[in-house]
């Protein structure tokens, strides 16, 4: 193992956290400035892919809240749930509610987008990276 790759392996985790933080920041600021769940999700995918390529898939999986497919599905579920919250108050589906301190179901919805993208695309990347080792 070359020193350079050792360096790469050691820096992988911090890099991942940085990317994830950036992703969350993009996600949260999206409502007021360019950004949002989708772009945030893609950044997170980039982070996870980095981790998977350098440290292997198990390491990447450990640092993700859920396995790819469940994560993606939970994302869709979250988005649906955020819409149902308004329905509990007798408002149409996807009517967003706001609390006094600035938290809202909009964020839940955007988080759903974030998870769905993060989960689905990491699912592709992990499987392909894994399969890449058997590729001819």
């Amino acid at each position: 193992m070359t020193p350079r790759s050792t360096l790469l392996m050691q820096s992988a985790r911090p890099l991942y956290w940085m990317l994830l933080a950036a992703a969350l920041w993009i996600l949260l600021r999206g409502h007021n400035e360019p950004g949002g769940g989708f772009i945030g999700g893609l950044l997170a995918v980039a982070g996870s892919s980095l981790l998977a390529i350098i440290l292997g898939i198990p390491a990447a999986l450990r640092l993700q809240p859920l396995a790819p497919l469940p994560l993606a599905m939970v994302g869709v579920g979250l988005a649906v749930l955020s819409g149902l919250a308004g329905a509990l108050h007798g408002l149409p589906f996807l009517t967003h509610l706001w609390t006094g301190i600035g938290l809202s179901t909009v964020m839940l919805f955007d988080l759903g987008v974030f998870f769905a993208v993060w989960g689905a695309l990491t699912g592709y990347v992990y499987a392909l990276v894994d399969a890449g080792e058997t590729a001819p």
């Binding site: 599905m73 939970v74 869709v76 579920g77 649906v80």
Partner: peptide
């Protein structure tokens, strides 16, 4: 919304 959401939720649940 039911005809859209019920199968969508079912899909999510069965996938999980």
């Amino acid at each position: 919304l039911g005809p859209l959401l019920i199968p969508l939720i079912t899909a999510v649940l069965t996938a999980l």
